[in-house]
Amino acid sequence: MRPECGRAAAAYRLALPGHPLGGRIGERLGQGTGSSLEFMDFRDYVPGDDLRHVDWSAFARTDQLKVRLFREEIAPSLDIVVDVSPSMAITDVKRTAVQDVVDAACSWTRSAGGIPRRIAGGGGVFETWEEVAYDGSDAWMPRIPLRRRSMRLLISDLLQPHDPGPLLRKLSAGASHLYVVQLLDPWEADPAAEGARTLLDCESDGRLDIVLDERTVARYRRRLARLCEAARSGTRSVAGTYALVRAQDPARMFREQLLPQGVVEPA
C-alpha cells in the first residue's frame, strides 16, 4: 500500500451494516451463538455444556436445567472483487485509485480482525498488484467461490450498457453485505468540451468520430447519471451500500466520497 494511502486509511474503518454478520471469532456480533456478553436465547442443557452458562435461577423455579445462549462475536471477512478490465487502468489516476481503495479495504478488514481476499473479476485471488494485468473481461463474477456470509466489495466503473442488477444480485447471494464502489476517472465523470475527437473503446475495436461540445457533454452526463442510478438501484435492491467515486488522492477520496456515502466511518 502506498504510504499516503495508508495514512489516509488509518483514519477510517469500514462502515458495517446494523444486521448481524458472519465471520470468524472476533469483536463483532455474529449471526450465530457464541461467547459474547449479549444474551440471545435459552435451550435445554445437554451433557458437555459449559456449567457456567446454566441458568440456575430458572432451575430453581422450574427444576429444569436451562443453558443461557449468548451471541457469538465474530470478525467479519471481506471478499473484494476488483474489475480488472482494461477500462480500470485507462489512466494512471484511475488505476492508482482502484489500488488505493482495495488496499485500504484490506487494511480496514485486517484492523477489524477479519481476513480480506482480493479477487480479480472473472479470475481468482491475487496477492500483489503485479499479478494484475488489467486485461480481464467484463465478467465480474470470480471463478472461485466466495466465502459464505462474508462481506463483499465490488470495485468497478460499471461502464457497461447492460443492467448491473442481475450481476449484483448474484454477487450478493450468500453474502452478509455488499458494497459497490463505482469508481470513475475524472474525465469519465466530467468530460471536457474538447472539440472534434475520435473516441476509441479501450476494450473493443469500437471507434466514433464525435464533436465534444457543451451540448454533447451535457447529454453524456445525463446518460452517465442514468447509468449510475441503475447501479445504485441495483445495489439498493440487495440492501447493499453504493458509492460513486471519482478517482483522486486517497485522503480526499475517503473523506469526501466514501465517508459521506456510508462506505467508511471514522475509526
Binding site: 485507462i90 469519465e188 475520435t198 473516441l199 453524456y220
Partner: peptide, 21 residues
C-alpha cells in the same frame, strides 16, 4: 476523416452523438 484520438471506457454513452460520416 480522423480526429485526435481519445481512449474511453464508456463509448456507448457517446454513440448517439457520433458524426454521420
Amino acid at each position: 476523416r480522423r480526429f485526435r484520438e481519445r481512449s474511453v471506457a464508456g463509448l456507448f454513452l457517446f454513440a448517439a452523438d457520433a458524426l454521420p460520416a
